[in-house]
């Protein structure tokens, strides 16, 4: 492991240095200890931007917002964004709820989808 990573910590904010074979074997490590933290994603977003890919950077910033959304819900939002699954207003509601949960970038993506789905006939009829 290279030195740059010594201060890393997981989504649980537990230092990665505490995630060892011993602690795993003792059952003291949860999947959240080996999940990425939003701060790390924001840092990586800045690295991507500095390497000629603002889109990857935006993606990582959206990802940072999604870290706090539980797995099942993440999969639910994906499902909602598939064609004909949601009415335009369903999507606007989803966007509002994302906004209120500290996910404004994802919310904006959902609003954009809603507008385009409406125009292109990809939304479920109201």
């Amino acid at each position: 492991m290279s030195e740059r990573n010594v201060d890393a910590y997981g989504y649980s904010e537990r230092p990665l240095s505490e995630v060892t074979l011993d602690t795993v074997r003792r059952g003291e490590v949860s999947i959240d200890d080996v999940r990425i933290h939003p701060n790390t994603l924001r840092h990586q977003a800045s690295v991507a931007a500095a390497h000629g890919n603002p889109n990857l950077s935006e993606n990582l910033l959206r990802a940072a917002e999604l870290t706090s959304i539980p797995d099942e819900e993440v999969m639910g939002i994906y499902e909602a964004l598939r064609p004909y699954r949601s009415t335009a207003s369903n999507l606007f509601e989803l966007a509002d709820s994302l906004d209120s949960r500290g996910a404004p970038l994802v919310a904006e993506l959902v609003r954009e989808a809603s507008r385009t789905y409406q125009r292109r006939g990809l939304a479920k009829p109201e």
């Binding site: 990425i36 990582l60 870290t67 064609p83 994802v106």
Partner: peptide
């Protein structure tokens, strides 16, 4: 794209979903 049961937005979201779990 739509026959594949996705849209650019659902794929963009999925892309972020993977990244959100590292």
């Amino acid at each position: 794209f739509v026959d594949g049961d996705d849209s650019p937005w659902s794929k963009a979201f999925l892309t972020s979903a993977y990244a959100s779990r590292g």
